[in-house]
């Protein structure tokens, strides 16, 4: 028996919008820890890891570990039927091949049940090793989204370089090239507007902008984004999901042939 009640249902709506472009089908795993997902895109270039901790739910009942295979486009169709202020409850019985999404309006005057068929998905779970990152950049998520969007109109790849001068995003294409430098800036009115650069050593990595742009679909979830870089490792682009968890996108770098 599984029953997860999320008062801030809009978070789940935003989570689906954030990952459905990257991943088609995925297993949602429920355990005492929380509600999680790990999945790669079809080319195995990017990986998304979602965690919504059990403490973040108003009610969290998960009698035994459960893995539920879902088509994310179909989940998104279901969740789009929930109002932004609705409370969303996920329910599944042991051994059932369906999951039920229940939507309650804030004043309880409308209650809807949407039942969705589950599917069998063969997915391999990857171990993500703990890493020491050479540089960690925290910046406004809207600024990062703007940079990725702007650069993708010039080129296909972005070089992200962190030095003590700041973080530089560069691209080049047929029509020319572009460089955007963001310096550390902590003298802002609100903490979420700050750009904070923690650098152990300079790092420079090249990534496909198409994936970066896809990650920025998570922008509505959080005012800030954290980008962790180490040479020879996938970049981690992390968006917090309120105070209950995160979405982490891992993207493999483009490397010298």
């Amino acid at each position: 028996m599984l029953e997860l009640r999320l008062v801030q249902g809009s978070l789940l709506k935003k989570v689906l919008e954030a990952i459905k472009e990257l991943v088609t089908d995925a297993n949602f795993d429920c355990s005492a820890t929380g509600f999680s997902l790990q999945a790669m895109d079809s080319s195995h270039v990017a990986l998304v890891a979602l965690l919504l901790r059990s403490e973040g739910f108003e009610h969290y009942r998960c009698d035994r570990n459960l893995s539920m295979g879902m088509n994310l486009n179909n989940v998104s169709k279901m969740l789009r039927c929930a109002g932004n202020d609705d409370i969303i409850t996920l329910k599944a019985d042991d051994g059932s091949d369906t999951v039920t999404f229940m939507f309650e309006s804030p004043n309880q005057d409308k209650i809807a049940d949407f039942e969705m068929k589950l599917m069998d998905i063969d997915s391999e779970h990857l171990g993500i090793p703990e890493a020491e990152y050479h540089a960690i950049v925290k910046m406004p998520s809207a600024e990062f989204a703007r940079i990725c969007k702007d650069l993708s109109s010039i080129g296909d790849t972005v070089v992200i370089s962190v030095t003590k001068e700041g973080v530089k995003f560069s691209t080049r294409g047929d029509i020319g090239n572009a460089n955007i430098v963001c310096r550390q800036n902590t003298t802002v009115d609100k903490p979420e507007e700050a750009t904070i650069i923690e650098m152990q050593e300079p790092v420079s990595l090249t990534f496909a902008l198409r994936y970066m742009n896809s990650f920025t679909k998570a922008t509505p979830l959080s005012n800030t984004v954290t980008i962790s870089l180490s040479s020879e490792l996938p970049v981690v682009v992390e968006y917090k999901v309120a105070d209950m968890g995160y979405i982490r996108f891992y993207l493999a770098p483009k490397i010298e042939d």
Partner: peptide
């Protein structure tokens, strides 16, 4: 020329 690497070459099943 740079080539796109895959996540599976950094993270292994487990």
């Amino acid at each position: 020329v740079r080539k796109q690497s895959q996540i599976t070459s950094f993270f292994t099943p487990g």
